[in-house]
Design a protein around this nucleic acid. Structure first.
Lengths: 163, 163
DNA sequence: TTACTAGGTAACAATCGTTGCAGATTACTG
DNA sequence: CAGTAATCTGCAACGATTGTTACCTAGTAA
């Protein structure tokens, strides 16, 4: 993702206003490798701007995603995750706490076998490795942060792992 | 997935009762390659049992998934999808209508590069190819079924594509 | 067949994540 | 510095899924 300063300029060029709320969100995302959920960004931003609304966070995150400055991921952790890392990469997800880590590797040879595409025009390939993070391997029964048994619902910082 | 008859026996062995509702759901899933959502299975089953509740469908699908007789997928289409196909395979998803198709190919060489696992114990690898199904390629602006993701609401079996 | 009982079912409410709205507010322009 | 359109905030609304509970029934023992 671009730097807060570059995003500021980009927003202006697009006729969008650069509000303190937005700048604060830009800062919260800069270099953020935690793949935060909207709720998580909200918590972080709220430390600096206690009156910001969750609605505004969603709004800005969606705007950034629409502009391609942010990737929105749905990894089955119950809520959308936002990834400022725009380089081609894949993910490693902890089935228990929902932590997400980036995986860099050349998987350009992974493609739909000829004849199995069913006429689809494939535009993206996503590879997700699932398993247990080291912390959860040790904490198998314990009370650590956990993804709700069944997918969907709840976050409370939970999805962002024991980060 | 096992046949309705085999599932019936399996449920009995587990001390679970085999009700007409469950058998109806077993039948709805047998050989179903549409990767239906709970709502979709509900619609299908309701044609035969108009009084069945959506709650019962969820309950049974969850039971089947817990027993490993069904795979629950979260492909970012807005709702969970259930896949009776237990053979190792991957998926092709239409970004517009949410249709899902199975892809069989040997991707056993796809793995987390040594040293990039961050200590994770990887238990599964999921590959999702995203793009546009042939129908949506032609129907780019039209009023065909669409994933509700961002736009307005009102769906009704929407996630199951123009099936 | 009949009565029993562990489970199941249906209907309803609640929860979580996310978005639609409406009125108050403010960043940018002239 | 004022005008206007874009934003912000708070809250209601929504879709997907699960909790609760009061009846109901499949499977079984008698």
């Amino acid at each position: 993702m671009k730097s807060p300063a570059e995003l500021t300029e980009l927003f202006r060029r697009q006729g969008l206003k650069v509000t303190p709320q937005r700048q604060c969100i830009f800062r919260a995302l800069a270099g953020n490798e935690a793949h935060p959920s909207a709720e998580s960004v909200y918590e972080q931003v709220r430390a600096e701007m206690p009156t910001i609304s969750l609605r505004t966070v969603y709004q800005t995150l969606n705007d950034l995603a629409a502009m391609g400055e942010l990737n929105q991921l749905d990894l089955g952790t119950g809520s959308a995750r936002f990834d400022p890392n725009l380089d081609p990469h894949h993910h490693l997800v902890c089935d228990r706490c929902g932590e997400v880590r980036d995986i860099y590797a050349d998987f350009t040879d992974v493609h739909v076998p000829a004849g199995a595409a069913h006429g689809y025009e494939v535009s993206a390939t996503e590879i997700v490795f699932r398993g247990l993070c080291p912390r959860c391997q040790a904490d198998v029964d314990g009370g650590g942060t956990r993804i709700p048994s069944k997918p969907h619902h709840h976050s409370r910082g939970g999805a962002d792992a024991h980060a």
